[in-house]
Amino acid sequence: MKNFFFKIYMLVFMALVVFFMVIIWKVTFAHILHEYHERHKTQEITKFKEQREQKPDKTKFEKVILESEERVKNYLGYRILEEVRIKGHFHHIGFDIGPDNRSYCIKCHGDMPHDAVKELRAFLNMHAFFVGCETCHVKLGDSNKTGVFKWYDRTTGEIVASPVKRGSPGSFKAKIIPFEKSGGAIQRVDSEERINFSLEYKQNEKTLSEGQKSRAKKLIHQIVSKQPYICEDCHQKERPLLPLENIGYPRERIDSITSTEVVGMIKNYTKFYMPKMLLPGDEAKKQ
């Protein structure tokens, strides 16, 4: 037993020595190597200085995508405000919601997919923050419609309890997803099978022929309806698409969301700007 503890002690000691060797390496010789590489990098920049003057500074992808976001910490004394810094954005965000790891739509379409209708796009993206794509873009037939909607956690993808009463409006870390009938049981529309299919397509995309790509895309978008649900499908009193009470909305919020009284008030709002929001993209552009 004594021998065993001695061996353990030796191993820990050896690990500690290696750890210190790495640190010493980093602050000494690695530092010299770093300087050497930095110096050469600067020399290369100088060398291509003239060329740079004629060419755009960086490729658009580098400039727009890779450099557009960084994390910053603002030291305010009484608190540290850590947030994403978007270049050129003045107001503090102070809000971190994390990516939607479950949605397979956003892997291609991104987190802010709505762009076609100028007047509506920001509002639709706002809804996309807490409403799963399939909620509006998948119209289930009578045979597989369930009327069941639930919340899923953006990070884990798991079905969770309604966050509505806990969070401020629109800032939930969960999204609404519809359920469908399948083989006698009900399952979420973003099933593992569909997710795996689309992920596999994305992985193999480069190796596929054009015909194979078209077929795969067709299959992935098979469940997507040409005409998505529109605003009034939810924002109505009689038969709103979403069972708001079942997904955790309190009565007062439901009344607000589905209220019709105020519609009349808005009709009288003479300065209300009327966008051509519901014309299909091309027609809207023509006008």
Partner: peptide, 8 residues
């Protein structure tokens, strides 16, 4: 629809 959406 636009009115209803915006209002809601």
């Amino acid at each position: 629809i636009c009115f209803i959406f915006s209002l809601s």
